[in-house]
Design a protein around this nucleic acid. Structure first.
Lengths: 224, 224
DNA sequence: GATGATTTGTACGTATGTATA
DNA sequence: ATATACATACGTACAAATCAT
């Protein structure tokens, strides 16, 4: 309702950007891979022009690094860099939670409760893909409740940049229900208007997420 | 040594992006203005291609908003949006300060002291342009001292997006020396390892900055 | 609501810069 | 070090979409 007017005719550039971003998120493309304009143009059956534009937009969200005259590559995330990124995400989401706790809007508070309820429902069903969507909505509800649209933008940006590394965190149902429990505490703090507690619990929640991701990555030998 | 090899021959795209960004920062272009590809191409004596690329990069840093098939415009900042942006900047810089206070590196702590010292020197000279540079270095020193490169990136990004509205804040020497006093307190807290105090004083510092800017904008009728 | 004017989106060719032999 | 190969950066032409009439 409040977002996504959903354009009727996606331009080629948008389609390519979305596809590439998705593949980078899924890990199909992976860090270090060179984004060759010619190959991509052939693959998408378009000219190199929209490919170039798409790559530019990927740079904007940190999914590509361009060197003049030398092409663009998918950035190489070291474990240290990932730790930094998770730390920042945790702090920003904690900030959102703190502000959210100060927002009295009944409608938005209800929206948060609803999103949390959906999360629980979906978690019990065990559908991991569906849960990721519900989880995203939950965090979006907090962004909205923060009452600061710009804060929401920046936080969402950081979150999206970490998307490639959050993908596999819910492969265990145990973790999935654990996430719900953590959400519980966060929601309670927010609804109680306790900003400090909300921020604290959100940081804890994301620390758990980071650790899960860390273990998975080590297992997969994702980096370095 | 580790960064910025400083390319000898900037591409046309980079030149155009830098120029446009600078003009937006200075307010020469101003919110609401349509970035017409053809006119810009003519103005820079290039084809539309590099202009398009430049506009894409401007979108990335929030200096342009593109609507498919309808061109790009310089975003329209409402006073509410500006307040939000300043709030986020204050929180992020406070975060940097908090982390900085926990960093024991003697070299980086010396760098902060040096940057602060430079600020004071330049402030006494009264050279406003030079002070803005020194001030930037001061805040950069804190970003570095935070020990989180990614946090520095994000914070710098937010700071840059507010650049167009910080330009005129130091037109009074009084404000300029006041800024030094505020820096004093922040530096002391950081060097004492008191993260909470550092964050608190940084927030206060930027609140003052925001208020200065707010008054100036009202006087100029900058928006709405 | 249809048509023409204008602007953006895409295709493709050429030039230039970078890397490798 | 010079030259060659290759990918990118840029220019130009056309197609498609938006807006103005």
């Amino acid at each position: 309702m409040t977002v996504k007017p959903a354009s009727k005719k996606p331009t080629a550039t948008e389609r390519i950007r979305a596809t590439l971003a998705d593949e980078i998120v899924r890990g199909d493309i992976g860090p270090g891979v060179i984004l060759d304009e010619a190959s991509l143009a052939e693959r998408f059956s378009v000219s190199r022009t929209p490919v170039r534009e798409a790559i530019r937009q990927l740079e904007a969200i940190g999914f590509a690094e361009a060197r003049p005259h030398r092409g663009a590559v998918v950035p190489h995330f070291t474990p240290e860099k990932l730790t930094e990124m998770f730390t920042v995400m945790a702090e920003m989401e904690a900030l959102c939670a703190r502000y959210a706790a100060a927002n009295p809007s009944p409608a938005l508070r209800e929206a948060l409760k609803a999103a949390h309820h959906d999360c629980r429902q979906v978690a019990q069903s065990g559908d991991i893909t569906a849960y990721q969507e519900a989880n995203r909505h939950f965090h979006e509800a907090i962004y909205t409740l923060s009452g600061n649209v710009f804060l929401a933008e920046v936080t969402r940006g950081v979150r999206n940049r970490l998307a490639p590394f959050r993908k596999a965190q819910f492969n265990h149902t145990g973790r999935l229900m654990g996430s719900i429990t953590e959400h519980d505490i966060i929601v309670e703090a927010i609804l109680n208007g306790d900003g400090e507690a909300a921020a604290h619990h959100m940081r804890d929640h994301l620390r758990v997420v980071r650790n899960s991701v860390g273990k998975i990555m080590q297992g997969l030998g994702v980096d370095d």
